[in-house]
Structures are given as structure tokens and as C-alpha cells.
């Protein structure tokens, strides 16, 4: 089950947009962080089921935060939500261990697809 969701983005509007795209019929527990460092700290404390991660952020970028989180938890489920859709950016984050990359502005069907895929992967991981 995916229940605990951490959203890491420096833009309060982007966090709001993302939350509004998550299905309303499921009960999620939301946590938010405004930069990569806060994101890493919250990750340690909360161990969320899914982390949505922006890339361009002050204090600590998403690129660094992903690396830090993967160091703590190699199975972390990180979905990058970014405006930076350069091939080099996508490759870097996937190489660092992000699960997938979604392009801003976020849309409901993108999120639904990502959640299904993440759930699938998590269940498969649990069976092994």
C-alpha cells in the first residue's frame, strides 16, 4: 500500500498542484519539504512510501537529495517531478536511483500511472 507521501519542491504552488492531482478517493498522509536538505531529513524521519522530488531547488538540489536518500535507503521510491527535461538531467537522476521522471506541469493521468507502476514494483519487491 502507498500511504505516506513526501513532496519535495521549493515551489508551494508546485506542491499544491501535485497534491491536487493525487486521487481523492484514497487516504494519503502528505508531508512536504521546501528544499533537498529538508527532504532528506524528512525522509529519514518518516520513511515515506513514495517521494516526489523536484530538481531545481535552493540549499540542496534534487540531484543531491536523491543521492543522499538512496544512500540511506536503496529501495527508496523516488519519482522526480521536474521542469528540467533535458536528456542529461533524466539520465543523471535515473542513474542515481530515481524510479521515474515526470514532466511539469503535472497532470492527473501521469500521477495515476506513476502510482500504479510504483505500487506494482513495491508489491513485486515485497514478494521476493
Amino acid at each position: 500500500m502507498i500511504k505516506k507521501i513526501l513532496i519535495v519542491d521549493d515551489s508551494p504552488i508546485a506542491r499544491k498542484m501535485l497534491k491536487s492531482c493525487l486521487p481523492k478517493d484514497r487516504e494519503y498522509e502528505f508531508h512536504e519539504a521546501g528544499n533537498g536538505l529538508e527532504g532528506v531529513n524528512q525522509y529519514k524521519e518518516l520513511e515515506p512510501d513514495i517521494t516526489f522530488m523536484d530538481l531545481t531547488m535552493p540549499v540542496m538540489t534534487g540531484y543531491e537529495a536523491i543521492e543522499e536518500i538512496i544512500k540511506i535507503d536503496t529501495k527508496a521510491m523516488i519519482i522526480v517531478v521536474t521542469a528540467d527535461v533535458q536528456m542529461s538531467a533524466i539520465k543523471t537522476v535515473l542513474d542515481s536511483g530515481a524510479f521515474m521522471v515526470l514532466r511539469k506541469p503535472i497532470k492527473k493521468d501521469q500521477i495515476l500511472g506513476a502510482l500504479d507502476k510504483a505500487m506494482d514494483t513495491k508489491e513485486k519487491g515485497a514478494q521476493v
Binding site: S11, I13, A14, M17, T56, A83, V85, K104
Partner: peptide, 12 residues
């Protein structure tokens, strides 16, 4: 945020 998305597009 819109500017952020727009500039991401330019960079790409």
C-alpha cells in the same frame, strides 16, 4: 513556477 517550467523547456 510557470517560468520555471518554461525555462526548463528552453533548456531542453
Amino acid at each position: 513556477e510557470i517560468m520555471n517550467i518554461a525555462f526548463g523547456q528552453s533548456a531542453s
